[in-house]
Write a protein that binds this DNA or RNA. Structure first.
Lengths: 235, 235
DNA sequence: AATCGTTTGTGACGTAGATCACAGCTCTCA
DNA sequence: TGAGAGCTGTGATCTACGTCACAAACGATT
């Protein structure tokens, strides 16, 4: 699944990490952080690799340090829905670890990503013995819950296919402070379609329309957002 | 909002509660339960009352002891979505209490309900000082997250209007072990429509269809589910 | 009982998006 | 360099629902 576990990153760990900010595990108190750091294993995962699959028994928890990971879930009839695109700082697999059951989602790297991985037991042991860590965990799950609820609301109540595409494009570039953010779209229309709960043809039509209106530009795999505000209006 | 806070129930509290089962706060260890019990105030809320509104600052946490409460959330354009129907044993307002922000949903009694209400501070103080309570809280939020995610998946990927109605009817009667559960439907088609993110006419048509197929029977406000399995197939 | 407001039932029609079908592209690989 | 295999683009239906419009049923009030 992860075919280069041995490929440890040569970075300096949480203390030197540029992505650190409040609410992240990587921003615990210094002494807790030292302990926490030793529990996890820093690694790089190539694009396309799956960190874990839905309905698989949860063995690990991951903290995403760099890159984007797509989180999807499936309905009984096999259709797939994009839950969200995880960004650096997100914790993956936390819910499954806490409930002690199976992963509720599938996490797949859409580009080379850096993660810090923890054995489920180590992770739980840590949060159970650090009030600090425990509160972090609770709050993170709480945040995931709120996000999921918000997504559900938008999806169920209004969001057109164009809106879903717009949301995805904005999520892919969130963090970028560019006026006209650009990124490499490494997914086919087919993949986008299953991620957004629609069909390949609809994706093609929406993207064509966005190009026609000069809201986005596509050259090969490179996609540029020309008018972010127009995308936001579609959500 | 709650217009009879003074109306304390004359029940015997958690120790005598028939609804107690694993995973509920009301099933803590005896000594923790004694302390917990004194923090909360048992009360009865009439049908139609709102326990709390979306985007209101969270002041209280409620444990639902009896009756059903509808949990809804709204999109920016004002449309309302049914999140779920809370059942006895559910904790309401926990997420908002933990995040220390606003309620993410609106909780309205759809029949007279019994709740145990806690000041947010008391509740948080309790869970922060009882590992037992803390783990309960974390797991309950986790469960809410998983439920929300499951709902979102079904809503976004497949669920037809008939499916949403079926889900609602099954939720209204969950807990009942009757072969043909019956309950009082106190909501108009109009209300059902906004709750399910659809229109009044569609609700009318779906219910007519279900009656025609003898999956449900309606006499006045009394609704009987004749073939539960047929409803489950629609989801 | 007569009246009015609310709720429910139903037809006619419009629209977004799924489905089907097929044609032009772009890669890869021999 | 040519042949597949998978992508992308686009038209032609089909369908579930939303929207509009109006009639019938029900419940409260006088």
């Amino acid at each position: 699944m992860i075919d280069n576990c041995a490929n440890k990153m040569e970075n300096e760990g949480c203390f030197m990490c540029k992505e650190r900010h409040a609410d992240w595990f990587c921003n615990l108190s210094p002494q807790a952080l030292v302990e926490f750091e030793t529990l996890g294993m820093q690694m790089t995962v190539p694009a396309g690799s799956t960190l874990f699959f839905e309905s698989q028994t949860a063995r690990s928890v991951y903290i995403l340090c760099g890159g984007h990971v797509k989180l999807t879930t499936s309905s009984k009839d096999g259709k797939t829905l994009l839950v969200r695109i995880a960004k650096p700082g997100d914790v993956l697999g936390l819910s499954a670890a806490i409930s002690g059951t199976v992963y509720e989602i599938t996490a797949q790297a859409i580009e080379p990503v850096q993660v810090k991985s923890f054995q489920r037991q180590d992770f739980l042991h840590f949060i159970e013995h650090h009030l600090e860590g425990s509160m972090h965990a609770t709050k993170m799950i709480n945040k995931e819950y709120r996000d999921a609820l918000g997504d559900a609301t938008r999806l169920a109540l209004s969001m057109s296919i164009a809106g879903r595409v717009a949301r995805l494009l904005l999520e892919m570039t969130s963090g970028a402070r560019d006026a006209k953010p650009r990124f490499t779209m490494s997914l086919t229309h087919e993949e986008l379609a299953t991620m957004l709960g629609t069909t390949r043809e609809s994706i093609t039509r929406v993207l064509s329309e966005l190009k026609r209106k000069e809201i986005i530009a596509i050259k090969g795999a490179s996609l540029t957002i020309l008018r972010k505000s127009a995308l936001e209006l579609l959500i």
